[in-house]
């Protein structure tokens, strides 16, 4: 197919151009709008300004939003590695009764939509006085990430191979030594991949965070949604300025992530 450009090739290129054009259009409008003064018509805004960023800085505690966003993302990743790693190890190394059931149980949070289990979860967290606090946001975000992590880690652990562990055992290594000296270093690329994908995912998770966050435990997406929702309360350019701040945060993480994983990998495992 390479080099040959039939009708299907032309259609393909047109479709891709339309798609990419619209995505770029959406992103560029947000960016341009955030630095423009009264851009209601015309191809480009007439006056550029940074006043909306000053406005956002006054309106929100940007530093707190960023800190919460990253604290949540990193805490979720660290905790889920600690939970998922042993589970993934057990699931890929041992055969035991009820293994299939357990696996589908771990899969369930990835199939059920966040709103459906998020509302009861939020109620439980409110009752436990954990909601509207960073800890509650972290707990809620763990729900989709731990299963996701287990699914990514399992093939990596299977790849390490049980005979490598048997070999280490024959050489006189004890279980903990095998785990930390053989398995952990060899599965590290998998842990890294899973971690980076989870960070990107957590930063952009909206529904779950929205349902349990409040006040100073908001992440950037949630603040952005709240601003966009209360459209009349502030100038639209100011909303776009916050959108750009979120956009930059997420894009930096995405670009870093894409250095290590491919887009297909991200989606096939994401969600």
């Amino acid at each position: 197919m390479r080099g040959k450009f039939g009708l299907s090739g032309i259609l393909f290129v047109i479709a891709i151009v339309v798609y990419v054009g619209n995505v770029l259009g959406i992103l560029l409008t947000v960016i341009l709008d955030s630095v423009s003064k009264r851009w209601y018509s015309g191809v480009l805004p007439h006056f550029l300004t940074t006043q909306w960023y000053a406005y956002v800085a006054q309106d929100h505690d940007i530093v707190n939003l960023l800190v919460v966003t990253f604290v949540v993302a990193f805490a979720v990743v660290l905790i889920s590695i600690l939970i998922a790693m042993p589970a993934a190890y057990a699931l890929s190394r041992y055969e035991f009764a009820g293994k299939g059931l357990l696996l589908s149980l771990f899969l369930l949070p990835m199939i059920v939509p966040p709103i459906a289990y998020g509302i009861p979860l939020a109620m439980v967290l409110y009752k436990a006085r954990l909601a509207a606090r960073v800890i509650g946001v972290i707990l809620a975000n763990l729900v989709p990430i731990v299963p996701f992590m287990i699914l990514i880690l399992m093939p990596f652990i299977e790849q390490v191979g049980a005979n490598l562990e048997s070999a280490a055992q024959m050489l006189g290594a004890r279980r903990p030594t095998i785990f930390f000296k053989i398995l952990v270093p060899l599965a590290l690329p998998g842990v890294f991949t899973a971690g980076i994908l989870s960070i990107v995912k957590t930063i952009s998770t909206f529904e779950l965070t929205y349902l349990v966050a409040g006040g100073r435990s908001q992440t950037i997406v949630v603040a952005l949604y709240a601003d966009a929702y209360a459209a009349g309360a502030r100038p639209p350019e100011a909303v776009d300025a916050l959108a750009v701040i979120y956009f930059l945060t997420a894009m930096i993480c995405l670009v870093v992530a894409l250095r290590f994983v491919s887009p297909t990998q991200m989606v096939f495992k994401i969600r």
Partner: peptide
């Protein structure tokens, strides 16, 4: 890359 961007950025943006 352009396909993954809207997924990563999420619905709100």
């Amino acid at each position: 890359f352009f396909l993954i961007v809207p997924i990563t950025l999420g619905t709100v943006l």
